[in-house]
Design a protein around this nucleic acid. Structure first.
Length: 428
RNA sequence: GCCGCCAUCGUCUAGUGGCCUAGGACACAUGAUUCUCAUUCAUGAAAUCACGGGUUCAAAUCCCGUUGGCGGUACCA
């Protein structure tokens, strides 16, 4: 049987981070059996439309690499839904009331549907059902009619969707039967919850998927993390590419219980991807990411190897390295944390050593020189290095000192240390 | 309320009757490496498998009930 799946968001705001998983599972299911993956815009609720939503959904899917084979929009098919609603009325399976068309539910017997997720079986007593609207008085279909008509016409199966649709199953089954259409296979996913176990929302720090992009998360990491929130590959691998997921994915192995979204683990995974990336690739990503940022120059490439193991998100790059590109701010209090007496005099000695070094400076030479100097002055090596670090960067934490000094260059380094001496230690 | 689903370390999970005195990952703690931070490595703490009954020689695994959580109950999706 041909497999074709779709991701069907309604354009009522930014694409939610939780939807990434729904889209991903639909994509994986399709690609695993060399089927098609479509994007369908469910814009039948005209009142809730939010401008720019479609663009956000489209660009987010592109960013993630979840490429769809076809894009359809429900409002384009208004006539089709009306035709089928009409047909139901003509056949006596629906009726008009208050300008809307209502489907007549059969209240006898049960509805039994086997779901692809965990092969569980949903059973509903039809006596609990009631008639429902299929075509609203504004002429647009409700979700139920649109789902049945679209997924039949587009030959979608399986239907991969959020769990809130489970209780609508009797409606959908009876609609398919009313049209004498084959009922597709269904796969109802679980809910993704926030840390307090309520539905994941902005309150939990969960944002639109595109906002994660802006915060310096990598699409690979987002995809990988979301995939594991409800699915464990048979291989047990934790880090896997889209292609590897396609190879291993199976809706059968998808979980039955809700999962809590954990930003901390997402960040760990993002860092994992950053560390595994080649320097060239990371440089390229940072360049794209930092477009427009004032402190960024062509020097990024040489900084990347120094910070690769120190950042978890692309945004971390800026606070960690800004002092390389521009003059740092100094705070006299920081110097007090360094356990060296007469810091001004020591710094002066350091300047002397630096000035006598051959130019251009090479990182390799610094370590030996300053270790010896520390010994001469009877200062712990660690404190010596910290003093230089703070004098050059204004920070207690930086990328490796000597490589950083080399990057900043002799002129700037000497200028900074001299500035610190005159400003804070007044040694003339 | 009614209907439906779910229930293993804080979190993501492995586990489909014996291999489980429950394994891995994140986070956490300690130690090693180290110029800071990070990385890496080692070690540790962390789950009476929600609870109560069954079934069985044997249950985290099967059955029933309870409790809890979540979803649905719209001319929203």
């Amino acid at each position: 049987m041909k497999v074709r799946t779709r991701f069907a968001p309604s354009p009522t705001g930014l694409m939610h981070i939780g939807s990434v998983r729904t889209a991903l599972y639909a994509y994986l299911t399709a690609k695993k059996s060399t089927g098609e993956f479509w994007l369908r815009i469910e814009d039948t609720d005209r009142k809730r439309l939010v401008e720019g939503s479609v663009e956000d959904i489209v660009s987010t899917l592109r960013w993630l690499g979840l490429n769809y084979d076809q894009l359809v929009t429900q409002s384009d098919r208004k006539d089709t839904y009306q035709k089928y609603a009409r047909q139901l009325v003509d056949e006596g399976q629906a009726y008009e009331k208050d300008g809307a068309i209502w489907f007549k539910m059969d209240l006898g017997g049960k509805t039994v549907v086997t779901d692809l997720v965990g092969e569980r079986v949903f059973t509903f007593e039809n006596k609990n059902q009631k008639d429902f609207v299929v075509l609203k008085s504004d002429g647009y279909p409700t979700y139920h009619l649109a789902h049945v008509v679209d997924d039949h016409l587009d030959e979608m199966s399986p239907i991969i969707r959020a769990p809130e649709w489970i209780s609508s199953l009797p409606k959908h089954v009876q609609l398919f039967e009313a049209f004498k259409w084959q009922i597709p296979q269904y796969a109802h996913l679980t809910m993704i919850l926030g840390s307090d176990r309520s539905k994941l929302s902005k309150r939990h720090g969960a944002k639109g998927a595109s906002e994660y992009s802006r915060e310096g998360f990598l699409p690979e990491a987002i995809l990988n993390y979301m995939a594991l929130l409800g699915w464990t590959p048979k291989s047990g691998k934790e880090i896997l590419s889209l292609d590897e997921m396609v190879a291993e994915f199976d809706l059968k192995d998808t979980h039955l219980s809700n999962a809590i979204f954990d930003t901390v683990k997402l960040e760990w995974m993002n860092g994992e991807y950053i560390r595994q990336m080649s320097d060239a690739e990371l440089t390229k990503r940072l360049r794209e990411f930092l477009i427009g940022h004032p402190s960024i120059t062509l020097k990024i490439g040489s900084v990347v190897p120094l910070i690769k193991e120190r950042i978890k998100k692309l945004t971390d790059f800026i606070p960690l390295t800004y002092f390389i590109f521009e003059e740092p701010e100094y705070d006299i209090e920081i110097f007090k944390k360094i356990k060296i007496e007469a810091q001004g005099a020591v710094l002066k000695t350091i300047v002397g050593k630096l000035e006598s070094m051959e130019k251009p400076w090479k990182a390799d030479n610094f370590e030996e020189i300053f270790r010896n100097l520390a010994k001469e002055l009877n200062i712990p090596v660690r404190e010596m290095f910290q003093l230089i670090r703070v004098a050059v960067s204004g920070q207690l934490v930086t990328p490796p000192l000597f490589e950083t000094i080399e990057l900043i260059g002799d002129r700037n380094v000497l200028q900074r240390i001299k500035f610190v001496i005159t400003k804070y230690f007044s040694v003339v």
